[in-house]
Design a protein around this nucleic acid. Structure first.
Lengths: 216, 216
DNA sequence: TTTTCAAATGAACGGCCGTTCATTTAATCA
DNA sequence: TGATTAAATGAACGGCCGTTCATTTGAAAA
């Protein structure tokens, strides 16, 4: 039997990627067999090789697509303005994007070790470029005096870890909506960069109240 | 051939754990074979079963030992005093402990999915207990007014992610010593919890200077 | 010295692995 | 309609997997 109905190249291909993403994220790259992926797609194992040269390429394509989508989405997020506004925008963007792609996020952190050195270097470069976008915001903020940070590069790594960590505990059916989480983290991130008060020029009378009202 | 020299029960056992930890962290649980572990120890695969009932138990024991060591070390860290002092102590402890056990830390985050549900529940409970220790500090700080936080539970998750994330990028042979990193993160953590200034009572004249000098 | 037994060997078990390929099927093109 | 060809099959390849176990080894106990 072959090609049961209609032309499948444009259908089976994406299904293979989706199945591989879900299974790799759930069980780990090495723990998932090509036969399992094929079964999920509803096909025999041999058919997968119409869509990927081998298992390693399947993983690499997933990670590269994820990073490319991330960069593109950030471009289209329309983040502009003064450093604090851009930081807020980045925070909301990062949370929203990552909460909706949890499988890919998990895969991107866990399975880098299963890439060949050459493929690893390519993914690492894409990640670094993304980090640099946040770092630029932080450096601008330090320059204008909006932020207070001992080391913008370290703060970049710290903030990305802080934000991405949401995917480790957040449950869509839990007590908090995505908007709740986003608001709470926005306040935390502002505090982290030392942006609790407008500037050193205007002395705050009650910092705790000022910060408590940032949410919206 | 058997028992080439001396009694080995007390030697081979730990070597098996060490080899398994290193290999699991490097390649992933599913990607490492019992034969690879045995080769690393200098023994045949069958001999491993004198020390573990099966591969799954080997993973579980590593994760449980890691969490138990973590809890014990925290107990012995002598963290006491007002909330800010305890937060500083926790921060330094967490960084120091995690940077020295990077394999175990990575394993604890990546391979939870390879545990049976029962074993997963046991590890999750141990992790939760550790998180609760930080959460208690944050809640105390909010109560005394030392900290400003919208949601102490979320702040707990955020801080642990922020701190543990160091293991993703820190390289011992890089530009920063462990003490440098620890100092920088101490300042970041203080800002994150809104502890930049002593309290709302004394209005700070220059926040950036006050924070910049926290390092030691 | 002889006995005991912890510790390790090495072969064997059934089973699944990634990948290849000749073959078959069915949709599309002429 | 018949020819073409994209897409999938299913069997086969060598190889490694986790685990078991009868056997061998050699250090320690008697």
């Amino acid at each position: 039997m072959a090609r049961k109905q209609g032309s499948h190249a444009g259908i089976t291909g994406p299904k293979v990627q989706e199945a591989a993403l879900r299974l790799f994220a759930q069980h780990g790259f090495a723990a998932v067999s090509m036969r399992q992926i094929a079964a999920e797609v509803g096909v025999q194992a041999g058919a997968l090789y119409n869509y990927t040269p081998d298992k390693q390429a399947l993983l690499f394509d997933l990670l590269r697509d994820h990073m490319a989508t991330l960069a593109l989405a950030l471009d289209q997020a329309g983040i502009a303005g003064d450093p604090l506004t851009r930081l807020d925008g980045f925070t909301r963007f990062h949370i929203r994007f990552h909460l909706r792609r949890r499988d890919a996020v998990f895969l991107s952190y866990m399975e880098l070790r299963n890439l060949t050195p050459a493929n690893f270097a390519r993914i690492a470069a894409l990640r670094r470029a993304y980090e640099d976008r946040l770092e630029a915001i932080l450096r601008d903020g330090v320059t204008t005096g909006a932020f207070t940070l001992p080391d913008p590069r370290i703060a970049t790594m710290a903030l990305i870890a802080l934000l991405t960590g949401i995917t480790n505990w957040y449950r869509p059916d839990g007590r908090l909506s995505e908007a709740d989480v986003s608001d709470t983290y926005l306040a935390l991130v502002r505090q982290t960069v030392g942006a609790g008060q407008p500037a050193a020029t205007a002395a705050p009378q009650d910092v705790s109240l000022a910060i408590g009202g940032l949410g919206a």
